[in-house]
């Protein structure tokens, strides 16, 4: 299927789902929409908060460690506007933000001070923050019906990531040093920007000519290689599927 066919196909699909002819806009809406301003709140499901695999140098041996936070649904807020350009085609911009702080599980293999190849496993927790700020710019197609408007959109996203990263682990040990105990992890904030993509559907339940409510489904994604002070922290994928609801103001 050629890309140009996508909007039509999606519109047809929505029309089918809504049971309303997609040509309602053509059937004589007295006043075509000019812009839609929307705000949302909801959850970004399966948010990658931290999946770090790094390596330190301890006692002249590599000391690999991981810091992980399981994927979780994280609350987000979002606000945006879509402006009509031609017929039901518009362009939009939205800003979304989510922030989360939780205890990451840190595991490390600490080399023995006297012997090679005798690592000691330690584990503990470290409070790690994760923030995503994204600017989504999109092309949008509005499928109107009597009760529901469906806005299909997609485009590039500019992500700003503020991620807590573990840069070192501290531990207690005493002779004969065959075991070690995790004491704390050093966490620093790393900020980085990256371009990604997004695709979504915004449904408006039309209760009045102007003030309405609706829901949002949007999937976005960007991959960040993370490093701090020469410490490689792997690649993190941010974004994900957000589901939320909020207010629509139609102009």
């Amino acid at each position: 299927m050629p890309p140009a066919v996508w909007p039509t196909a999606l519109a047809a699909l929505c029309a089918l789902l809504l049971g309303t002819p997609s040509a309602s806009a053509q059937s004589g809406s007295p006043r075509p929409w000019t812009a839609i301003v929307s705000t949302h709140g909801g959850l970004q499901v399966s948010t990658n908060r931290l999946a770090q695999a790094s390596e330190l140098d301890k006692y002249v041996e590599p000391a690999p460690f991981t810091a992980e936070l399981p994927k979780a649904a994280v609350p987000f807020v979002d606000g945006g506007v879509t402006v009509r350009l031609w017929k039901n085609l518009g362009v939009g911009a939205a800003v979304s933000f989510l922030s989360n702080r939780a205890d990451a599980e840190v595991r490390a293999e600490i080399p023995h001070p006297f012997y090679f190849d005798r690592p000691r496993s330690i584990a503990g927790e470290a409070s790690v923050g994760h923030r995503e700020l994204a600017l989504h710019t999109s092309a949008a197609w509005l499928i109107e019906s009597r009760r529901l408007d469906v806005l299909v959109f997609g485009g590039p996203s500019l992500f700003r990531l503020d991620q807590g990263l573990v840069t070192d682990v501290s531990f207690d040990e005493e002779f004969p040093y065959d075991t070690a105990t995790f004491t704390e992890a050093n966490v620093v904030r790393v900020q980085a920007s990256k371009t990604g993509v997004h695709l979504g559907v915004d449904v408006t339940w039309k209760r009045s000519r102007r003030w309405n409510v609706g829901g949002l489904l949007r999937y976005s994604r960007a991959r960040f290689p993370l490093a701090v002070d020469g410490l490689e922290a792997g690649t993190v994928t941010i974004g994900g599927l957000v589901a939320g609801g909020g207010v629509r103001v139609i102009f």
Binding site: Y59, V60, H112, F114
Partner: peptide, 16 residues
């Protein structure tokens, strides 16, 4: 501090 060294038989060891 823990360093490293090469022994008589050219094997690497940790040195306290």
């Amino acid at each position: 501090e823990v360093g490293s060294g090469t022994g008589v038989l050219q094997d690497r060891k940790k040195v306290s």
